Simulated assay, not measured.
Amino acid sequence: MALGAGLGLKPQHYEDAYAVVGDGTWFEVHPENYLVDGGPRLTWLEAIRARHPLSLHGVSLSLAADRDPDVVHLQRLKALIERVEPALVSEHLAWSAWGDHYHPDLLPFPRTQDALVRVAANISRSQDTLGRRIAIENPTHYLTIEGHDWSEGDFLREIVRRTGCGLLVDVNNVFVSAHNLSIDPVAYLNAIPSDAVMEIHLAGHSVDTNGALLIDSHDAAIADGVWRLYQCLIDRIGPCPTLIERDGKVPAFDVLLHERQRAQSLLDHGVSMEAMA
């Protein structure tokens, strides 16, 4: 079944998600919350999976780190994949562990030749262990990092070429980064290889205290500028599975369903336009 628009699944919405019937909604979770052998969360996830497609969006493989992905973590992730058979699996182009130190964040890095080799190797190891293709999410940027050998678009394109992975395009990340670094968000999207895009994310952001920096906070409604960028993207690449993310100040389920329906309407319009072409 082709995926349309979906929602990030939060524990407070398990019953609401389970009750959704017949509208094509799918749900995405962070697998780190479900890497267990049993318990109520996993029971709920399996119950919802019996009714709806799932996607697993990882936050801890640390693909840009200086070492291989953790073997134990990968094996647990593989077991969860075999258990719930997700439609999509994704991770971030970032690092959170370096040497013996762990940082609870998704951190950027200079896009050097060495980084390209390291990231590509870690993605390939992950895909080999998991036995499937994964999608890699573009990062959010807050300041200019020196020492890049590659533009981000070329870096992503080369990773795809070397590993066969796909891409997850987070449109809010593009919008926030474009504002913070004073770059053209449409040009950024146009540099992404369209045939590699497996999933799109839409989320809200916030403004820091002095009003100069946008923060990828996932705690607000999707901004109009993000919706416009999303329209530009699907106009170019066609309909693609699209997720509504909300991780803070999570509203009632019906509010998220409304945003999900807006995304689905844009996807449906894209399908109609393609059919007329």
Rank of each mutant, 00 (worst) to 15 (best):
E199S: 00
E15K: 10
D114I: 02
E28N: 08
A47W: 12
V29R: 11
A50I: 05
A178G: 14
L266A: 04
A191M: 08
N33G: 11
K78S: 06
A196M: 03
M1R: 14
M1P: 00
P251Y: 09
A223Q: 02
L167N: 03
L3M: 05
T129H: 06
R228M: 08
I159P: 08
V186W: 11
D216T: 00
P69N: 15
G22M: 08
D219G: 04
T242G: 01
E82H: 12
A223H: 12
P104S: 08
R260N: 07
V226R: 04
L80E: 12
L3F: 04
A47I: 10
L9Q: 07
D184R: 00
D219C: 01
G248K: 03
L189G: 07
L143H: 11
H258V: 15
D195M: 02
E274A: 15
I123H: 06
A65S: 15
P139V: 07
L74N: 04
D154L: 09
A223D: 14
D216A: 00
Q231W: 07
E46G: 06
G39L: 09
R157M: 13
N122W: 14
R83P: 15
A212W: 03
H269I: 11
A2P: 15
P31T: 02
A178E: 09
V72H: 15
W26Y: 15
R133S: 08
L9H: 10
S182Q: 06
L88H: 14
H269E: 12
G6P: 06
D195E: 01
R162K: 04
L257A: 09
D184Y: 01
M1W: 14
N173A: 08
E199V: 00
D16A: 12
D70H: 06
P139A: 04
L116C: 06
R260Q: 10
E85F: 15
G22N: 14
V117I: 11
V72A: 14
G225W: 06
L267D: 14
I215W: 09
L88A: 03
A191T: 05
I123K: 01
H205Y: 01
I136S: 02
G6E: 05
L61N: 02
M276C: 13
A196I: 03
L213N: 08
V71N: 14
R132A: 02
I215M: 09
V36H: 13
K10N: 04
V160M: 05
G38L: 11
H141Y: 13
A2V: 14
E46H: 11
H92V: 00
L156K: 01
R133W: 07
P31N: 01
E91W: 07
P110C: 00
